[in-house]
Simulated assay, not measured.
Amino acid sequence: MSKKARIQQTRLEGLESEFQSLLIICLIECSKGRYGLFGQNSHLDLEDRYWKWSEAKHLRTLAADIRLERSKAGEASPLCDKFLSLCEARDSNTPGEPRLAATFLGEMRERS
């Protein structure tokens, strides 16, 4: 493995570690009733005046970065893909953010 590849792998591992720990914290908070994690109402507040949650915004950025880095290597990150798919769900039958968070958190706990 080249030095560049090792550096990229170390960076990716750091991003994934940060993502996973922040995801759990945000899912717990969201499952208690806080909106903004999945961005379901972001179209109502384009300037982030009412649903301001910098950790959730950072989490979405981390997930997108991880997905991009993994796709360059022909790999996938199931956890990031699941999170981003929930962020993109916007139809009328999509449960509210607290319910989505509780379900996702439960799925994560079952896997570990």
Rank of each mutant, 00 (worst) to 15 (best):
A5E: 04
R49P: 01
H58I: 05
A101G: 06
L23S: 03
S77E: 12
R90N: 07
H58D: 08
C30D: 05
S54V: 13
L46R: 15
K57D: 14
C26A: 15
R109A: 14
A56T: 03
L46Q: 15
Y50T: 12
Y50A: 03
D65E: 12
S54Q: 11
Q40M: 15
K32H: 10
K4A: 15
L22Q: 10
P78Y: 08
L12M: 07
L15G: 01
L86D: 09
C80A: 15
N93Y: 11
Q20D: 10
H58A: 12
R11T: 09
E69Q: 10
I25S: 11
G96T: 09
Y50D: 03
A63F: 03
A101W: 01
K82D: 11
K82N: 07
F83I: 02
S92H: 12
T61W: 08
I7N: 08
T103C: 00
S112Y: 07
A102F: 01
L59Y: 04
E29V: 07
I66K: 03
M1P: 09
R49M: 13
G14D: 01
L15F: 09
R6E: 09
T103N: 02
K82Y: 12
S17Y: 02
T10P: 02
D65H: 07
D48F: 03
E18L: 11
D45F: 01
R109Y: 06
L27E: 00
C26Q: 13
E97Y: 00
R99L: 15
L37A: 00
S2T: 11
D81S: 07
G33W: 01
E16G: 08
D91P: 00
K72H: 10
P78E: 14
L44G: 02
L105Q: 05
F104T: 10
R111V: 13
E75L: 11
N41G: 04
A89N: 08
S17D: 12
A63L: 06
L37C: 02
T61Y: 06
C87A: 11
S2A: 03
G14Y: 01
F19P: 00
T61H: 14
E16I: 06
A89R: 13
C87E: 05
K4D: 11
Q9Y: 05
L79V: 10
A76Q: 08
L27W: 00
L100A: 01
K52C: 13
G96V: 11
S31K: 00
T94Q: 02
Q9S: 10
G14I: 06
K72W: 05
G39H: 02
F19D: 01
R11M: 14
A64E: 06
D81I: 03
Q8N: 11
M108V: 15
G36F: 04
T61A: 12
I66W: 04
S42T: 08
G36C: 07
L15N: 11
A101F: 02
R60N: 00
